[in-house]
Write a protein that binds this DNA or RNA. Structure first.
Lengths: 194, 194, 194, 194
DNA sequence: AATGAATGAGCTTTCATTCAT
DNA sequence: TATGAATGAAAGCTCATTCAT
């Protein structure tokens, strides 16, 4: 494996950034976690910032891909939305560290938000707007809903619940239940069938 | 005003934290912004962390109060929800620094999230669950929706849109339009009237 | 004394730079020598480079002044040249550290040489060309000698001997003797009276 | 060529040391310039210091030899001095990197000055004192001039002018003119024929 | 002999916090 | 109370040197 060391450092960074937060994380700790010397980190990454950026750039790819697959395997627009939401929450459950980074550290500094909202993260959010648009074309979803806002509403809701679940000690409400409830509200609304 | 100096430091901290982020903000800059000496900050606050904590503890109060007033002035459960959402987005527009802190810096470290999710911030979120519960009792809202999840869904959606609006340079979509769309989705859902 | 601390750090830097060389000198050692904490150095100087630059900018002034005085107290062009040379060598004897910096560290990097050859150091060298020009006007010195080259010849000779004297352990040849010999060669040449 | 690789590294070191200065020069850069791997450097040289030392020890030899030849080809003591000076300045012109090292980096640290003033560099300077002594024996040069000081005066003058010429961007005064003027001053002095 | 990835000691610089005034 | 100069621990990053291949 040529890039095994780089990969090891990246995985270690995810873990340490998630544990300590970007600013409190020490490069030395990341290196130790990866089983390499401090200087080795700088052979593969320009600096600490580059480490965080690389995580988002490189780790988003498989996430997007598997989300696409999940959506592709679903029937009907509402099924697709359910698939996206269920997939995201499952990801949070299986990969808590990466989820924490996406939720918490990505917001850390406007710098990152501005620079990277246009890249991989945007691609991910666009999966939601694509579902909406397709559903609108097919006559399933309301035409008057703006796709830019819709993707933020859905992601915001899912993300907030994920963040709380990650932090929560008791985890009384399962992510399965959460997924169902988010879908219910987003698809049908909170108002009783008028 | 006995505590005018303390208040000045607190306001300065909101501004500087919003501008630079908690970790990049320098206590010296906060003091300068407040028009006091660096050391004076430590007469009123234990340390830099305490400054951030105090902001949430003390600045949340009037926000909660005015949100309550806005809700109280509304008719019907759906009107209350509209009121909450509109109020929050208006707050973001009028008080961008504080909004940024709530959105970005509050998430900064799990430490803060864990310690303070149970205090003033929780009170704020509970305004949403109260609206839901009242609406459920009155027969307007679906009973099967969990209030803990609902408040997170609503806040997450509103917060995500606020964050994007704050960062966005163009601000093509007005917060007024955003409020309407959020209400539409949350109240009626995205699915066409079945 | 308001600037006593700054002055102490500057003096300490001269000593440590002279002892260890610019690159080997540690800021921590300079601070310790000055009797202050490491961080204090950065209250008065932007960085390590600024420390070296400040030495040249600020310590050259009194040197130039006292050289001017020595020249002013001398009779005749040849007396003025003798005065300059004797003064410089005396300076070397009395202030070995500063002399070392001028001789060795100033040459260190082209960066410094380029940036500072036009300032205080140039002023010092110009004392020599002024002596030449005055002597030429008075009919004492040969008109065909270029003043730009002359100042370099004289300074180069004096500087080389100073450097060797500073380094030399035995110091067999006194600086007094050296001054006489430099003057003899520069004024009359090595050739026997033709 | 058995030692072609060693020679390549040495030449590369001259170039890089001249370009960046000894302390700022990276061994990796030297290796790259030489077209070898970093580690290879350490097969031929003990460490970075040894590289600088070796340059002086080994590259001085041909310089001394060619200076000797130039002197040997000259007539009369004054011709020999002219030959030495002209040769040195020509060397500076043709081999700027090596000249820079001799002028700037050799002075860098007392360590090098102390350890190496007694070796090849001393041999080079002794060419000047030999010229003086021979001229004194032949009745051409003043007996009262000390040869140790004389060689420093001549080298100092030539070196200072070389250094300035190397750094100077305009190079208004040619090295040919410089050589003539140095000779004029050293041989006949600045004083008008008394 | 040659490689170049890996090492880790060591340095500059920052900044939250203290304390003499 | 208020000041702001001084502190010094702490961390990011560099690079001479090593060593497994």
């Amino acid at each position: 494996m040529k890039n095994s060391k780089r990969e090891k450092i990246l995985k270690a960074a995810i873990k340490i950034f998630a544990r300590d937060g970007f600013f409190n994380a020490k490069v030395e700790d990341i290196a130790r976690q990866a089983g390499v010397a401090t200087g080795t980190t700088y052979l593969y990454f320009k600096n600490k910032d580059d480490l965080l950026i690389s995580i988002f750039e490189e780790e988003m790819m498989p996430i997007i891909k598997s989300a696409e697959d999940a959506i592709g395997a679903a029937d009907m627009p509402d099924g697709e939305l359910r698939a996206f939401i269920a997939h995201h929450l499952q990801l949070v459950e299986e990969n808590a560290d990466m989820a924490h980074l996406l939720q918490v550290e990505l917001r850390q500094s406007s710098k990152f938000l501005v620079n990277y909202s246009g890249t991989k993260f945007k691609e991910y959010l666009d999966l939601i707007s694509d579902i909406l648009k397709k559903g609108q074309s097919g006559g399933y979803f309301k035409e008057e809903i703006n796709s830019t806002l819709f993707k933020q509403i859905v992601f915001g809701a899912v993300d907030q619940i994920s963040t709380n679940w990650t932090i929560s000690k008791t985890r009384k409400i399962s992510l399965k239940t959460s997924a169902d409830q988010i879908c219910m509200v987003i698809l049908d609304g909170v108002l009783k069938h008028s």
